[in-house]
Nucleic acid binder design. Structure first.
Lengths: 342, 342
DNA sequence: ATGAAAGCGCTAACAT
DNA sequence: ATGTTAGCGCTTTCAT
């Protein structure tokens, strides 16, 4: 045995016993309540110091119903959510609130409604409110204010932060069309998310506006998931009449597509142009660097937390606030004119 | 008033009442305990479904002492910790554990010992163990296993994950020396962290090995903090005999230095070379792209969580495991030979 | 000024 | 098979 017997948690009773007072008195000292003599206060504080005592967040929040903690619920910690967290960090700084990020650990994929589960497990206790990132479910009217980032399709009516997906996708498709591409494939996103629907719609609108018919066989479900996208990309590129360009609904899928193309001997952008969506930091880490539609992800995180804090504080934010941030096409090296040889 | 009266949390008592049984029975159903008739089980489950009940994590973990949740405690959500979280996400996926990230919201700067406070608030309840990222304190022997990432200086003896800071810094300085730089400044890191000490030591060793004396006036405290670093960089560059190169102890400081230089009319790398440390995603988002020492941050996060899970499960990891991952110089565009004109 | 006791939501002994 | 009860750590009346 190399492990020392781990000393158990120091509780308020340990402090009380050591100081020779009741737990109630300790609690009063902790919370600056009236009715404790100066002497006792000093003695209790000394013991608290000596024992290194801190009140258990869990016990406290079971008892109180205000915790000064807000939650961010994400399905998984991947680049998009990590970027969002940086923005959440910006907003929480100096707000007086603390931040707990709860990750379903990727198990979300199996399990629709993970956020209902976690929200239900956390709210009313532990957190005063929550930001839900790409939730799979619409109707949550739980014990705490909730803000959705990149929301589910369906009836809106809940505070929401997202970006201008329609215009962004439109710009992406226009860019490819402007380069001269006609056989353009699309790897779509998670069908339950509004963002995915709008990105597809933007793509279709731009194609229609250019008078180019969408070949439905070139529209494949990518689900925002790199593995799914890679599989569809491989099929797409193996076909005799393969597309000259791919618009992927997010960067992770776009990067996966580039890798698939390169592994099967195609050059990007000479043989295949690829456009993504999001502009996650990884978009400049791949070769060639990715042309993509930038969403201000970090700011989305910041705004979502600010909105939530307002709601928690009971300020008069309308419950239906919808913050939509602009998107912007960023042209890098993964797109070019279709090869003359094709 | 536009806010609906928020329905309070659904508790086990609501379920019990609705199903016409006792809370104990509901609890048994929830936890698959023996001694509940098929009929009752079905009825209770139906009510649970109907009410959308989920057990409160808080109440549960107050009662039990195993939560299947592990915590990551970070001072702030900035690029380094966000990157680490991605790795933590990789490790948690499919492990059966859930992940809670607790951020002090940047208030850590004021407050040495934040991690003691949070660990104390969370452990024994809520989390079964924790990863501490850049802790400010050494001696924590609390109720749960702890793994440190980028640890504090001082007696080791606790499970740790870090990277080869000494060699990395050495390589960075060697690179600048090899380009012909002699007046090389260093913006050091957070002095209480081992990584900062080793980065400075590596720098000094490389300088000594090249027979170049370190001008102590060019070594400034940057604290890993972009604002502090920017201020010191501004002073450094305003001096008549300014350095031709700066080695910053982390990328955030290096990027801040580049910005300061450019604002004061210096060209990077023509007039000033800058090297960073970390290789955070932002290192390729600045102009010019940053030459830096890569740490495998994401893998560090993954390994830390894996190590912790082993400890929580009581597998026989020695309590003193030290995982050190390699670092690697990545030459990009922010370094060049010193300008002939100087 | 201090303490006893109830109760937050839950689980587990221990009745019945 | 079901219910009663105690208690996890804490805060808060309400005595004293």
């Amino acid at each position: 045995m190399q492990t020392d017997p781990i000393p158990p948690r120091v509780t308020i009773r340990d402090v009380a016993r050591q100081a020779g007072v009741s737990v109630a008195t300790v609690s009063k000292v902790l919370n600056d309540r009236y009715g404790v003599s100066v002497d006792t206060t000093a003695r209790v504080k000394a013991v608290i110091e000596e024992l290194g005592y801190e009140a258990s967040l869990v016990a406290q929040s079971l008892r109180n119903h205000q915790t000064n903690v807000i939650g961010i619920l994400v399905a998984d910690l991947e680049p998009f959510s990590a970027e969002l967290l940086k923005g959440a960090g910006d907003a929480i700084r100096g707000s007086g609130f603390e931040l707990v990020v709860y990750s379903a650990g990727g198990r979300a994929r199996d399990q629709v409604g993970w956020e209902r589960r976690y929200l239900s497990r956390l709210s009313g206790t532990l957190v005063d409110g929550a930001v839900l990132v790409t939730p799979t479910v619409v109707d949550l009217h739980y014990g705490a204010p909730v803000v959705a980032v990149d929301p589910h399709t369906g009836p809106g009516g809940r505070p929401t932060v997202d970006s201008d997906n329609l215009r962004g996708a439109h710009a992406a498709a226009e860019h490819l069309l402007g380069l001269g591409h006609r056989r353009i494939a699309m790897l779509t996103g998670r069908p339950d998310l509004l963002s995915a629907q709008l990105r597809e719609r933007g793509f279709r609108q731009a194609m229609a506006a250019a008078g180019v018919e969408v070949d439905e066989d070139l529209v494949r479900l990518g689900s925002y998931d790199p593995d799914t996208a890679a599989e569809q990309a491989a099929r797409l590129l193996a076909e005799p009449d393969r597309p000259t360009a791919v618009f992927a609904a997010n960067d992770l899928s776009a990067i996966a597509t580039i890798e698939v193309a390169q592994r099967s001997g195609l050059r990007v952008p000479e043989d295949l142009s690829v456009v993504g969506f999001d502009d996650i930091p990884e978009a400049t880490r791949c070769t060639p660097m990715l042309t993509t539609v930038e969403q201000p992800i970090r700011e989305m995180g910041r705004r979502a937390v600010e909105l939530l804090i307002g709601l928690v504080r009971g300020e008069d934010e309308p419950e239906t606030t919808h913050i939509m941030l602009p998107t912007r096409l960023v042209v890098r090296a993964s797109t070019a004119k279709p090869d003359a040889g094709l």
